[in-house]
Write a protein that binds this DNA or RNA. Structure first.
Lengths: 149, 149
DNA sequence: CTGAGTGCAAACAGTTTGCATTACT
DNA sequence: AGTAATGCAAACTGTTTGCACTCAG
């Protein structure tokens, strides 16, 4: 299921880019395919490093430009997890999403889901004076390993 | 009550700094007093600008150093609201806290409180593998004015 | 052939750091 | 007097932009 979902996301993302008038390009496809292989949040640096480790020669700029395009098309979500660098993750067309636990000691990021939280947030959004498009919940603390150490 | 709370916070903050071994200094007091006058999140830039507008000659560096000290002592909370710059706000000793609505169109930040959300988050924290020290909820969208426009 | 896509290097913005000076204690 | 606090400028980091070159359509 997870594999199918990720493959679907890559296909969906490439199609959406094409529909939006973007041409095909090596750097962009490389970023999209790399994102498709991940399930949780990556930084631009992570993406750049992994692409280079795989022998690819994409420039930082192309990574950022691709991420911007994908974010504009709502294909990826840009998250601020509080360490001064943005994180990006594919957003599933189904609309389902998770939130994040961040270890302030080692930097690890762990996703979690909680239906009750979603329900509570949903109710909250209706009560508020803004038109809410998106919500982010970030729990900061120490992961199990760092608590032990 | 709001006035009393803010005045208390300034007093509390200055005492805590003194107890922690910090000497008295003009830049630090200026930042603390300015924070005491605000109730919601400010950027370092905001603080620097407001101090200069008031005729003060503090350097950026001192603002940041003060904010770091205050954050370490848990006197202020550092928030990442997703626009690449950190926001800071006094944290009340009572432990009560609010979360934020951010208008992605005009940048406005509006605080809100929701006891049910706090309860839900509390339960969630107990169920999770991390030891959670803090939680941030950020709702992104458009404020009433920007929806109208 | 034309313009979007790309890589590089330079530009930027927010934040941090090094250092000489100032001023609490 | 001794040492923390401060202001300035330079250094750093993550991100964006300008430009010449390449390649998809």
């Amino acid at each position: 299921m997870s594999m199918a979902t990720n493959a679907d996301w890559v296909k969906h993302a490439l199609e959406t880019l094409a529909d939006a008038g973007y041409r095909k390009g090596g750097a962009r496809s490389a970023v999209v395919e790399l994102l498709g292989r991940q399930s949780c949040a990556l930084t631009a640096r992570d993406i750049d490093d992994q692409l280079h480790a795989g022998g690819n020669t994409v420039g930082r700029a192309s990574v950022y430009r691709t991420l911007e395009a994908l974010t504009d098309l709502k294909l990826v979500t840009r998250l601020d997890l509080g360490h001064g660098q943005a994180h990006y993750e594919p957003s599933l067309p189904s609309g389902e999403h998770h939130h994040h636990l961040v270890c302030d000691a080692c930097g690890r990021v762990t996703p979690f889901e909680d239906p009750e939280l979603e329900r509570t947030l949903q109710k909250l959004c209706n009560r508020v004076s803004y038109s809410v498009a998106e919500h982010d919940v970030v729990l900061h603390g120490k992961c199990r390993d760092c608590v032990a150490a």
